[in-house]
Design a protein around this nucleic acid. Structure first.
Lengths: 142, 142
DNA sequence: TTTCTAGATTAGAAACATTCTAAAATATTG
DNA sequence: CAATATTTTAGAATGTTTCTAATCTAGAAA
């Protein structure tokens, strides 16, 4: 546990350095929260609350800054599903999502469980950056 | 043009009545703006500006109310793609979208140009409400 | 170690989309 | 027309995200 967390921190430190960012106390604390456990979908507000719970003083502005920097550095993926807040996904592998229409909750769907067999060519002058499949689900009306 | 616009208004009036809504001046003006031309993706803010341009006095609150009512009545589809604002889509047929990562612009992709051949079963107690495929595109780096 | 400075953090204000409130206006029914 | 249920509205309130400009800090250099 401590070992794997340390490994994560060393990895993140290296990746921050590679992206020209200093490994500060705040960035390391957020990296630990984000990457120590398995895959997560988290909002800035949630991550900020989690840091507060662990008595790591970090401002909300820094949480936002850091999430965007991590995203730019390829450590996170920003999900723009469901309006309102943005989710940040620590699962970088090819995958899709179930989206609960009621609560806005997201659940991963492994990439190989969804097959998109046909897609049109992108408009001239553009390239496909990614294909996101969102399976919207609702409570079944009994 | 005038004929088809009138037809749209008669249709909308009927659908509003069917949904228990009164066909008011505001709702009819918005319906005309939304449905007179072909398929559209529009935000509340944009639709409000368009009404102002045509000297139809409608408050922004009414635009929001009306968009939601139309959505509930099955006249529109709300798109929760791209964070921040919500788009309302007048194209009710089965289709997907290109999403320009730079500008947030949406372009329709006909439903039959995308084939999702495999999807997992939804979690227990839920049913699939829909499957949305978003093809994210960016300017091609020359 | 101390000093220097570019980069990082911060509180609070600002910006933005959206929803709410409760008062005034309007459409429909009788 | 009168009665009443619905609708519209301005403006306030909410929630998320970004901005600002002052302060702090990590790392480099002396």
């Amino acid at each position: 546990m401590a070992a794997s967390s340390d490994k994560i921190i060393r990895d993140v430190t290296a990746r921050l350095r590679a992206a020209g960012m200093r490994p500060t106390r705040q960035r390391i604390a957020l990296a630990r929260a984000l990457f120590a456990k398995g895959d997560r979908h988290i909002t800035a507000e949630q991550l900020h609350a989690e840091a507060q719970d662990q008595h790591v003083g970090i401002s909300l502005a820094t949480v936002y800054n850091t999430l965007h920097q991590f995203t730019r550095a390829g450590l996170l993926r920003e999900l723009a599903i469901g309006s309102g807040r943005s989710y940040f996904d620590t699962n970088l592998s090819h995958h899709h999502h179930f989206f609960y229409e009621g609560s806005g909750q997201l659940v991963d769907v492994a990439g190989d469980l969804v097959k998109v067999s046909t897609v049109p060519a992108p408009p001239k002058g553009t390239r496909v950056a990614g294909i996101d499949v969102v399976i919207r689900i609702t409570e079944r009306n009994r």
